[in-house]
Design a binder for these strands. Sequence first.
DNA 1: ATGTATGCAAACCATTTGCAATGAC
DNA 2: GTCATTGCAAATGGTTTGCATACAT
Lengths: 163, 163
Amino acid sequence: MESSDKTKESAKQTFTEYLNKNKLRKTPERFAILDRIYSINGHFDIESLYCYMKENNYHVSKATLYNNINLLLDCKLIIKHNFGDNISQYEKSYNTHTHNHFICTRCGAIKEFSDINIKRTIQSKRIKNFTQLSYSLYIYGVCNKCQTEQEAAEQKKCVKTRI
Amino acid sequence: MESSDKTKESAKQTFTEYLNKNKLRKTPERFAILDRIYSINGHFDIESLYCYMKENNYHVSKATLYNNINLLLDCKLIIKHNFGDNISQYEKSYNTHTHNHFICTRCGAIKEFSDINIKRTIQSKRIKNFTQLSYSLYIYGVCNKCQTEQEAAEQKKCVKTRI
DNA sequence: ATGTATGCAAACCATTTGCAATGAC
DNA sequence: GTCATTGCAAATGGTTTGCATACAT
C-alpha cells in the first residue's frame, strides 16, 4: 500500500469516528469528498474541488461541499487559509499542525515550507490562559521572478530618462 | 506632543510622499481617513471604520474607504488580516512589520503579542530566491474562558449520565 | 480647464439559507 | 418510518464597478 493510501485510510477512520461520536450519518458523499480532498496536494478552493469531483464523475452540490468542509475543519482533517482574495483555500492536514508559507506580494505565488527551528520556537511560547493547538505562519516578500522583472523595468526607466 | 500624535504626523507625511510620488490627489477625505485609522488601536473592518467616521461627523462613502484602504495597504501604512470569517480586518502598521496573534478557535477572540525570539527565528530564515519583507503569525488554540466553559459543560454531562 | 476622486446605486460573487426530495439509520 | 442530508435555487452581504457630479491641480 502506498503511503498516500495509508494516510487516506487513516483520515477515513478519523472521519468515521468523528461522525459516530457526533451521531452524524455516514453518507457516500462524505467519504467521496474526503477521498478527493486527500488526493489533492497543496491548496484548493471549493470551486476547484467541485470541478475536480465532477471530472471524476462524482456530482455533489456546492452546498454539500460547504457543509462537509465545515465538518472536516471541525475534526481537523483539513485546514483553511485566507490569503486575502476572499476565496477560502483549504488543504488536507493529517497530523500536520504547522503551516509555513512564503507569499510573494507582487504575483501572489505561495510556497510552503517546514522549519523545525521556527516550529520549536513558536510552540515553546507559553501564553497565559491559552492552550496552543496549531499555527499558521505567512512570510511576505518578493520572489526572485518578480524582483528580476522589477529590476529590468527600473533599468529600462533609467535608460529612458537618460535619453 | 503625544507619541501617538507623532506617529500620526509621520504617517501623514509618508502618505503625502506616496501620493506625490504616484501623482495622486491630496483630498481631505484621504487625510481624514488616515487620521481616523491612526486613532484606532487594534483591528477594524470597513463597516466599523465607516461608523466611526460618521460618529465623528465625517461622512465618506464605502467606495471611497475601499479605494483608500488599498492605497494605504500599498504604501504599507496599514496591514490586512483575514481571520476566516470573510470580513477583512485592517490595522495601522507604522514601522511594524511583524504581527503575532493568538486566536481562540471557539469564540474567535484575537490577542496580539510581541516576541523577540520568534521574530529573530523567523527573520533569520533564508529562502532561496525570496526577499522577506514582513510576516504574520497566527497561533490557534483555546482561551481560558472557553476551556472553563467546556469543562463545566462536560462535568454537567457526566453528572447527567451518572444519574 | 482638465481629469482624478467622490458618492450613490447597481453588480458581483463566494458563501449561506430555505425547502422539497432522498436515503441512512 | 423518522429525520438528517442532499440538491437546487434564492438570499445574503462584503466588496467592486459604473457613472454623474464635485473638486484638486
